[in-house]
Design a protein around this nucleic acid. Sequence first.
RNA 1: GCGGCUGUGGCGGAAUUGGCAGACGCGCUAGAUUUAGGAUCUAGUGCCCAACGGGCGUGGAGGUUCGAGUCCUCUCAGCCGCACCA
Length: 1016
Amino acid sequence: MSGTERIEKRGRYNFTEIEAKWQRYWQEHETFKVLNPSDCGADTSKPKYYVLDMFPYPSGAGLHVGHPLGYCATDIICRYKRMRGFNVLHPMGFDAFGLPAEQYAIEHNVHPADTTRANIETYRRQLKMFGFSYDWSREVATCEPDYYKHTQWIFLQMFKSWYDDQLEWTDPQGNQTIGRATPIEELVAQFKSGAWGVDADLELVRDKETPRREWVDLSKAERRQAVNNQRLAFIDEVAVNWCPALGTVLANEEVTNDGRSERGNHPVYRRPLRQWMLRITRYGDRLLNDLDDLDWPEPIKLMQRNWVGRSTGAEVIFPLAKDWAVEGGEWKCLCGSCADQPVFSDFPRSIKVYTTRPDTLFGATYMVLAPEHPLVGEIITDERKGEVETYVAQARNKSELDRTADTKEKTGVFTGAYAINPVNGKEIPIWIADYVLMGYGTGAIMAVPGHDTRDCEFAKAFDLRIIPVVMPTDEWLAQEEIRPADLQDVDVLSEASMRDLRDAYRKSPESFVEVFVDQGVAINSQQFDGMSTAECKTKITKWLESRCVGRTAVNYKLREWIFSRQKYWGEPFPVLHGEDGETIGLDESELPVELPPMDNFKPTPVEGDSDSVPEPPLGRAKAWATVERDGKDWRRDLNTMPQWAGSCWYYLRFIDPHNSDIFCASEAERYWMPIDLYVGGAEHAVLHLLYARFWHKVLFDLGHVSTREPFQRLFNQGMIQSFAARTSRGTVVAPKQLGLQEADGSITPLTDDQCMHFVNDDLPEEDVKRLVEQEGGEPVARVVAKMSKSLKNVVNPDSIIAEYGADTFRMYEMYMGPLDAAKPWNTQDVPGLFRLNQRIWRLVVDEFTGENSVDLVDVEPSDEALRLLHGTIKRVTEELEQLKLNTAIAALFDFVNGMTKLGKRPRKVIEPFVLLVSPFAPHLAEELWARLGHGKTLAYEPWPVHDETLAKDDEVEVAVQIMGKVKARITVHVDADEKTLEKVAMADAKIQSLLQGKTVRKVIVVKGRLVNIVAN
RNA sequence: GCGGCUGUGGCGGAAUUGGCAGACGCGCUAGAUUUAGGAUCUAGUGCCCAACGGGCGUGGAGGUUCGAGUCCUCUCAGCCGCACCA
């Protein structure tokens, strides 16, 4: 190591050489390579700790300062855990498939594989500069065939399974569970044996009472459909955001409010398209319930719960008035072709709705269908046809965002048809309105304008009846700002005026300013009158059930996952499509299905609102797309999987990254899972984490993984923000783009020094007045903003590392504030941490001679030095355990300050301190450890343990308060009891004088803290 | 609109969970030092006042308590998520 000699000669803290040296050392010695239990030499007696970072998407811009925030934190924890005797798995890889690479490829005519490879190299180089203790031998990239072979394999498992939601089983962890992913063969066997059948829509029917069709009577295509209707991965036609110009489906987030594509501003249309779907909703309950046992931030759990959006209520059937009548409580079919007294699951010519408020059924005065509802065409009367069709056509082309824009007024059309309210036999009009979404519930609602704000708005707009069926609480009725104008003066305390209010509500609920949507007491509901909302819900549902027109139901906001993209740079689907519409999964031995080499990734543009949908780019790879098998022609699927696919299981691949047979060997999986700590940004709070949990549960059901949940503990790092300026118009610009307006109107750009003062908010007042944005000359104010390319305030870690070193960078980011808080980057603060590292360096090294400092002494440390050390060990350890890394570093500062005061540095104190420093500034600590005479890395040295008796001072200062205000301080023994404390406090001269002429009422003593004297 | 989070000096942030508000760092002030180094060391640094004393201070207003940054009620501001979910 020639570099060391030079360092010794100069003796200064030369971070460049030290960091290069130790990074080389770690690499050469494979210091952080960790073994799997079956590997030769593995020590399975140690406890395991699996720490995972959210792996990055390698974009062209390279790493920014936000990435390493979480990575530094996990690295510190990993280094700490190793020293605490854990086998630590700490891997890193790249989420390498995705749209940006493809867009870049189209614009610059390069292959996404090439740019991705180059970007990965940049990222890897940058990540290595930080000295992270990753086991690089486990690196993966999701775009490599070795990797996506298994992504395809997992997809096949979903294609080959279905969710048996009634199967009761005990999972390997001993939990009683209902519902499980099961091989599709078991479903087919049940069909074949005649145990199960299907309904008219080829959906599964288990009981034999319900009218159903049997397997033997189904055509080949129908059988395939019946099975497809259950598969976890299936093909279905769904309404999507189709952008003809871009030639792809867009996510809702990629569509602007005026129905155009975010990228390119092209028109976007709602189109029903055949897409791969994953049946994630079957896991809704488990995705919800299993959150309870996870050590995640509550807000994230809440976001996931809201996303799943489970609600309970009832499905209710509203028969069409032209086809059904009620005679003597029995349903009578008017068309003659339907069975009288139909069963719930087979009630022809009726509208099924979902409601969370079956108790308000008597208040349902009209119905609304979503414009896309399949019954719309059937029920419109001839005279309404034109108007309805125009409305439906309009709604069809609106994006979801457009339709749900909040300020929008209610629109709709009457169909001319009526339905029968099953609770009272009354005929109610059926309307069509886009405030009802096809994607939720049944796509149809019963409207209760008396107790639903949206229905009320609609009813008022179209002059529909409003019937109150829930009497609000007195408290609600009595609110002044809600009461009708003519009842403003009543005395709400009297029972008589409450009666007036109730009568007024009964007569015209719309005269109250707000709609009552809460729980109350049923009115106008015949035999259910007087029941509480909760009771009424159950009773009405039971009543409906007994008449086969309703049943309890559960609904989710969660939608099935649209899983295909019309793009090149993603995982191909491992399936073949036959000419007759059959889709088969490939055999495992045929994986991976590699992407064909191509050089043109452009979508085929289509003009305007055409129904034709062009082929995805993969369609141009003609030879690849066609496969001959068993004498028949098959076609590959031309779609690819979305970017989420690879990240749904990467944490499993890290466990066994080079296994070419299976995605992850079971023994290793059982050893390492679940992940003990998962750190990443809150932007993945819902989608990635939900999708990955879903895949994991499928793998768990099928016996491929051993834990119900992948990520036991989750931690969200906060965003690194930037100081910026906001102009009076609201534009945000970086400090560098500011200037001072001179008297002649010209603008002088801010100097670096002035920028600093701007950031610190302490520019001289006359400068603040002249502060303007350079380009527009508009006045600005200081704000904290997101770092963004357009703001030109992105800080590149490379330059900071070059200037101050990786150890300083790591320390600075950890010292900025709490890990989970958003905080602004301030380069000005970096030198403070650089100074800390220099001071730590000088605790050991004499800067001039380069030898160990003469103050470093081999004598027994003083009590004071020991107290300092053990206090520091205690603090650092406790803060590390809680991921409070900012205050842990504050403890390091305190130690160095303390040592500076003490002068001499006993080796017995300095050595453990170097170990405490090592997770934070590993290069520095390794170098000092070597200079202290140790021959090998400190990465596996035991973590220092503090001795409580040494950490404590014998004496402690206690505050003495009078009436809660500190008036004096006394010094007492740490263990002094309450009585002693009180005595010493009362004896204090100052306290004595302040108590002159006052009566002591009470004395509160908190041991070791304070004495509070209550006196007047 | 609904839900969540956050408001503490000139700046970033501490505060043992109801017990001395402002740890630690940045910046600033003064001094020492010279090995002129992205130095170091010492002292100071919340605000106000008639200044070895006193008053006020954790977005604002109330409240509970011997005692509140911390708990309760109301309120303001900022950020994030969802958004016609029946």
